[in-house]
Design a protein around this nucleic acid. Structure first.
Lengths: 338, 338
DNA sequence: ATCCCCGGCTAACCCGCGTTAGTCGATTCG
DNA sequence: CGAATCGACTAACGCGGGTTAGCCGGGGAT
C-alpha cells in the first residue's frame, strides 16, 4: 500500500492537544462525574477528540474494565438460512444494553463447535447464547459451563440451562383452530418425524382442538411424512386418494406444504376452495411465493433471539433460576390458502 | 447466581504454579524460540497451564501485539437469508490465516451501517469486507476508508475499492448453452429489472450464445418480469400464450421460475418434456424442492466470501492494487427441469 | 490569622500479555 | 587460570485506558 498505516489516535494525543492530563480525557470521554472538571475543560477535550478523530480502543477498555461487553452467539447458521432471524433479534436486543454479539458458526460438528466456543471464551464473552436451527434436545460441550449460557430453539436434555423454545403445542392448536373456523371438519395432518419435539407438540395441539370440537381424531388422516416437498407430495396424494378425503390439510412444515400444493393442483382441485392448506415455519421464500400464498404458523425466531438475550442478561445479573424455560408463542400468518 | 464468577486464570497464576517467571510462560505458550528454555521447563509450564485451565486473554494480547486478528464483515444479512453463505465462505477462509470475523449486520440503513462500522473500528479490525445481498453499485460511508476494505457482490461506483463480483455474463451464457445443448431453439428469457447489473449481464450472455448458434434473438421472447413468483407466472403465461411459444424458458431468478412452473403446469404441459426451465441464483429452498427440481445457475456466495477474504489479506499485505476486481464464475447446477 | 473545605485537576497504579535487554552460573577456549 | 561464550531464565517496559488517592490554590468559617 502506498498509504502508510496511520497511527491510531490515543487519549494521550487528545490530552496533549487539549492541554490536560490523559486522566482528564478519560473522565470527559466517559462522562464520569465522580471527579469534577470545569465545563470549559470538557469542551476543550471534546473538541480535541473530535478534531483528531479519536476512537476508543475496545481491547484496552475491556482489559482495564475487566468487562468485554460481548455476548457470544453460537449457531449452525449456514445449514438453515432462516435462522438468521435469531441473529437479528438477538443483535437488536443486545444493542439496547450496549452489548455486542460475537457470532460463532459451527457446522453441527462438535469439534468445530468446541473450537468456536473456545474462541468466544478467549474473547471473554460475558455469556453465550446457543441457538439451534431446529427445535431439539442438545448437549453442550462442557466448556460452555464456564460462563452463563442460555439455549435458544433447543433445550438441555437434563435441564441444566435456561432455554427459550417455541410453543409447538399452541402452534398446533392455532393451525387446527383456524381450519375449524373455516368450517372444516375433516382435517388431515402431515407430520414430521414423530420423535422430534415439533412433531409431538404440533400433533398434541391438533388432537386437543379436534376433541374440544367434538371430533374424534381419525388415524387415517395422520401421516408422518418425510420433511421435504416430495414427502409432502406423497403424503398429500395418499390423503386425497382416500375414499373420504380431508377438506383441509395441516402440514407440519412449509416445504411439505409446497409438495402438497402440487398433489392438490394435479388433481384439478383448487386452494383454498376445494382443499385448504396450512403450513408451519413461515419460510418466507416458500410461503410468500407459493400460489396461492400459504397461510402458516410462524416460528418466532427473531423474538426467540431477543428473549435469549433477555434471559442471558437476567442470568448474568442473577435474576434468573438456572433452569428457567421460556416458551414463545407461534403466531398465525394469514395468507390465502385457508 | 449462586455460583460466584470464577477468577480468570492468568499467566501469572500459571507461572506461580510452574515455579517460573511469567515471561517464561509467555514464551512457552506462544512457542517462541527466540529465547531458549529447557524441555523440562516447557513441560512444567504446559502442565500447569492445562491443570489450571488457562485461556489466553484476547484483549490483552491484542493490546500488547497491536494487532487484533479480526476482520470485519458488514452485511445486510437479514434481508437475504441465502447470503449467509458469504459468511461461511469468509469465515472458513479467514480461519486458515487465524483471523476471525466480526460480523456487523446493517439493515440497508445508512445510520445503522455507519454505527456498525464505527464499532468495528473500535475493535481495531484489520480490514473490512462489505457484502451486499444483491449485485449492485454501492457507496460506502467515508469512515470505511480508515482501514483496508473490499467489496463482495457489489462494487464502488467510482472503483475506489477492490471488489469480488459474480460473472453474470458467463452465467447467462451457461444457462443458454445448456438449453441449446438440450436441443431448444426458441428460448424465452424472463429477466429482472433491466437496470441492474444482473439483468444486463445475464441478458448479454443469452444474446451472445444465441447469436453464436446462428439464432437471431426474438424480442417477443424477452420479458422483463417482476422479480417474484407472481412476476414469473405472469411472464411465463404471456410467453406460453404466444402463437409460437418457446420450448424453454430461462428465468433470471428462481422465484420467477417457481411462478413459471405454475403457469406451465396449469396449461397441462410437462417439465422438462414439453417446456424446459432453467433458473438463476440457486435458492436451495426453492430449486431443490420444486417438482421437478430446478436446474439453475448458482451464485457462488460461499466462494465470493472466501475470495473476499483473500483479496482483503492481499490488500493488507500490499500485494493488491487499490481497484482490482475479481469476477467469480457462476456454476450450473443440473437438476431435472432441463 | 488560621484552619478547613472544596472545586479542579493529575500522578500513579493496574488490567494481562509480548518482547527486549539483560542477569547468572556453567562450560569452553586460549 | 582468566576470559569469552552459551544456555536458561527473568526484570522491566509498553500497549491504551479505567480509576483511586492525593495535590494545589482559593474562599469561607472561626
Amino acid at each position: 500500500m502506498s498509504k502508510t498505516t496511520r497511527k491510531q489516535i490515543t487519549m494521550k494525543d487528545v490530552a496533549l492537544r487539549a492541554g490536560v492530563s490523559r486522566t482528564a480525557v478519560s473522565f470527559v470521554l466517559n462522562d464520569r462525574h465522580s471527579v469534577t472538571l470545569s465545563e470549559e475543560t470538557r469542551d476543550r477535550v471534546l473538541a480535541a477528540a473530535s478534531a483528531l478523530g479519536y476512537r476508543r480502543n475496545a481491547s484496552a477498555r475491556a482489559l482495564a474494565q475487566q468487562r468485554s461487553d460481548w455476548y457470544g452467539l453460537v449457531t449452525e447458521i449456514v445449514t438453515a438460512p432462516f435462522a438468521v432471524n435469531v441473529i437479528k433479534g438477538a443483535q437488536d436486543r443486545a444493542l439496547v444494553d450496549e452489548k455486542y454479539l460475537l457470532i460463532a458458526s459451527t457446522e453441527s460438528d462438535p469439534a468445530v463447535e468446541q473450537a468456536a466456543i473456545e474462541r468466544l471464551l478467549e474473547q471473554r464473552v460475558e455469556g453465550i447464547i446457543y441457538a439451534a436451527t431446529w427445535h431439539r434436545a442438545v448437549t453442550l460441550p462442557e466448556i460452555a459451563r464456564e460462563v452463563p449460557t442460555v439455549l435458544v430453539n433447543c433445550f438441555d436434555a437434563e435441564g441444566r440451562f435456561p432455554a427459550v423454545v417455541p410453543d409447538e403445542h399452541a402452534g398446533g392448536r392455532r393451525a387446527t383452530e383456524r381450519l375449524l373456523a373455516a368450517g372444516h371438519r375433516r382435517i388431515g395432518l402431515i407430520n414430521l418425524d414423530p420423535a422430534i419435539p415439533a412433531a409431538v407438540g404440533r400433533r398434541l395441539g391438533y388432537h386437543e382442538v379436534l376433541r374440544e370440537a367434538g371430533i374424534t381424531p381419525d388415524e387415517n388422516l395422520e401421516i408422518p411424512g418425510h420433511a421435504t416437498a416430495h414427502g409432502g407430495y406423497d403424503a398429500a396424494s395418499a390423503l386425497l386418494d382416500l375414499a373420504d378425503p380431508p377438506t383441509a390439510i395441516f402440514c407440519a412444515n412449509d416445504r411439505m406444504a409446497m409438495g402438497a400444493y402440487d398433489a392438490i393442483k394435479e388433481r384439478g382441485l383448487r386452494i383454498p376452495h376445494d382443499v385448504a392448506v396450512i403450513g408451519f415455519d413461515n419460510q418466507e421464500l416458500i410461503a410468500e411465493y407459493l400460489r396461492p400464498a400459504l397461510t402458516t404458523v410462524a416460528l418466532p425466531f427473531e423474538q426467540m433471539g431477543a428473549l435469549g438475550v433477555d434471559l442471558l442478561a437476567a442470568t448474568i445479573a442473577g435474576e434468573s433460576t438456572a433452569t428457567e424455560t421460556v416458551t414463545v408463542d407461534c403466531p398465525l400468518l394469514e395468507r390465502v390458502s385457508v
